[in-house]
C-alpha cells in the first residue's frame, strides 16, 4: 500500500484530492515498532504525526504521585488501523500531551510535523480540510471521554 493510499483511508486526510494527498505523502515515511515500544512520550517535541497502518497503540496519560501513591499511567484511548496518533504535531505548542505505547507490533506512516505545518500554512484549502478532519477526530475523542465520565458518575451515584 502506498503512502497516498494510506492517507486516503485516514479520516484526517480523507477530504483531500489525489494531488493534495501526494503533497502530504512526500513528507511521510513508513516506520515499524515492536510491541512495548514507546513511540512518543508526554512533553516531547511533537515532531511527527502518525497514521497507524497495522497494530494497536495505547494512548496513555500519566497521573502524578498523590498521597504516598506512585504515579500511574492510564490508557485513555487505543489507536488502531487508519487512525492517528500525535496530532499535537499540528497544534500549538507542538508538544505531545500523551504517551503512545505499542500494544503489539505496529506499522505506522510517520509524517514530519514541521513539513506538514508548512504545507497547511502555504495551502489554505489543504489546511482547512485537514483541520476539519482533526476537529472530527478530537470531537470523537471528546465524546468517548464524556461517555466514560457519565458512566463513572452513574456508578458513583449507585454506590
Amino acid at each position: 500500500m502506498t503512502a497516498k493510499q494510506v492517507l486516503k483511508e485516514c479520516v484526517l486526510f480523507s477530504g483531500l484530492s489525489d494531488s493534495e494527498l501526494e503533497k502530504v505523502a512526500i513528507s511521510a515515511v513508513e516506520k515499524q515498532y515492536e510491541a512495548g515500544t514507546t513511540i512518543f512520550a508526554t512533553g516531547d517535541n511533537a515532531d511527527e504525526l502518525f497514521v497507524i497502518q497495522e497494530g494497536r497503540v495505547a494512548v496513555q496519560m500519566t497521573l502524578p504521585k498523590t498521597g504516598g501513591q506512585a504515579s500511574r499511567r492510564i490508557t485513555v484511548d487505543v489507536v488502531t488501523k487508519n487512525e492517528i496518533a500525535g496530532w499535537s504535531a499540528i497544534v500549538e505548542p507542538y508538544k505531545y500531551t500523551f504517551t503512545a505505547v505499542c500494544m503489539q507490533k505496529t506499522v505506522a506512516l510517520s509524517i514530519s510535523g514541521e513539513k506538514l505545518r508548512w504545507l497547511l500554512r502555504d495551502n489554505p484549502k489543504i489546511g482547512y480540510d485537514v483541520m476539519k478532519g482533526l476537529a472530527r477526530v478530537i470531537a470523537a475523542g471528546l465524546n468517548d471521554t464524556r461517555q466514560v465520565l457519565i458512566s463513572e458518575r452513574l456508578l458513583a451515584s449507585q454506590e
Binding site: A58, Q60, R73, T75, V78, V101, D144, T145, Q147, S151
Partner: peptide, 11 residues
C-alpha cells in the same frame, strides 16, 4: 459497556 474502560490491561 464503555469501550475505553475495557482496555486497562496495559495500565
Amino acid at each position: 459497556n464503555i469501550p475505553l474502560s475495557r482496555v486497562g490491561g496495559l495500565d
